[in-house]
Amino acid sequence: MTTTVSPTMLRIEGLRQLRNPYTLAFTLAMPVAMYLLFGAGMGYGTLSAGNGNVSFYVMVSMAAYGTAVAMSSLTSLAATEAKQGWGRQLAMTPLTTTGYALTKLLTAVSFAALALVAVFVAGLLTGAEAEGAWRWVVTAALILGIGLMFGLYGLGVGLFFGSDSAAALASISMTFFAFFGNVFMPLDGVMLDIARFTPLYGFVALSRWPLTEGVLTTGQTDELWMLLLNVAVWLVVFAVLVTMGVRRSRSRR
């Protein structure tokens, strides 16, 4: 009961993910590459958008995406590992469930932060601009804070789908949600109407708030309550998914 988290375990867990080509590709390389491709690399990057420029807008989108993928894939990995033999191995040590969850959560948040820093640094170097340094800070805080909800999503997926494919499923579904959630490219018309109900929409729109204050690239405006409702509803859905996952993994022994 003395120590709940082992620094050695944290360090090894971190190293492990740094060695994992899959984690690196999806959480670090892909968001940065997409930012460079669709943000900095485009002629419209320097155009103004809200309280900054388009590069900043794309940067925020990609950082949010990277965070969501990092949280969901790492927590789904944690869930599948715990259910498999490694969980039995750990169950024979003084490590508590809380300690395990805390270690994994810290690892996931660290990677989410790493993904965010990578995209933000790329943004800084390639001309992403916003009025006032505080917008950078608040945006980063919003992304990391709200991004935690996808840890719940990953946990649910990991508990529900037993195999190692859960992590792949978690991050691939995130990419899917990003396409249909107005994250990668601006949507309009029916697609935008649908996007408003998808899980990444509220998260990304809130992350962009310091820049856009709700104004979309298409000229429409998001109401703040709509975005908060989106986040709240999906939080509940993820929580239900986790509860069902726990029940399922218990019944199947």
Partner: peptide, 24 residues
């Protein structure tokens, strides 16, 4: 354990150190 699993992507040394660290 018969069904106790190890993590394939850790090295042998890391595995032993990780579990050891949990005991102090």
């Amino acid at each position: 354990l018969q069904t106790g699993g190890l993590l394939g992507d850790l090295t042998v040394g890391e595995t032993v150190r990780l579990i050891a660290s949990l005991y102090g």
